[in-house]
Amino acid sequence: MDQEQLLKELNFKAVKSSGPGGQHVNKTASKVELQFDVWESSGISEEEKIRVLKKLKSRLTKENILILQSDESRSQHKNKELVSQRFLIILKNALKKPKIRKKTRPSKASKMKRLKKKKINSEKKAYRKNPLK
Rank of each mutant, 00 (worst) to 15 (best):
Q3R: 12
L7V: 00
L7M: 12
K8G: 06
E9C: 03
N11D: 11
K13S: 15
V15K: 08
K16P: 01
K16Q: 10
K16M: 10
S18D: 06
S18Y: 03
G19Q: 06
K27P: 08
S30I: 10
E33H: 07
L34I: 01
F36C: 05
V38Y: 04
W39F: 13
E40H: 05
E46T: 11
E48A: 11
K49C: 01
L53F: 10
S58C: 01
S58D: 13
L60C: 07
K62C: 06
I65F: 00
I67R: 07
S70C: 15
D71E: 15
R74G: 08
Q76R: 15
K78F: 06
N79S: 09
K80I: 04
L82Y: 08
L82F: 12
S84W: 04
R86Q: 07
R86S: 06
I90W: 02
L91D: 03
L91G: 02
N93H: 09
A94L: 00
A94N: 02
A94R: 05
K96G: 05
I100V: 13
R101P: 07
S107I: 01
A109E: 11
S110Y: 00
K116W: 09
K116S: 15
K119S: 13
K119D: 14
N121F: 06
E123C: 12
R128I: 13
R128Y: 13
K129H: 07
K129E: 08
N130D: 12
L132E: 14
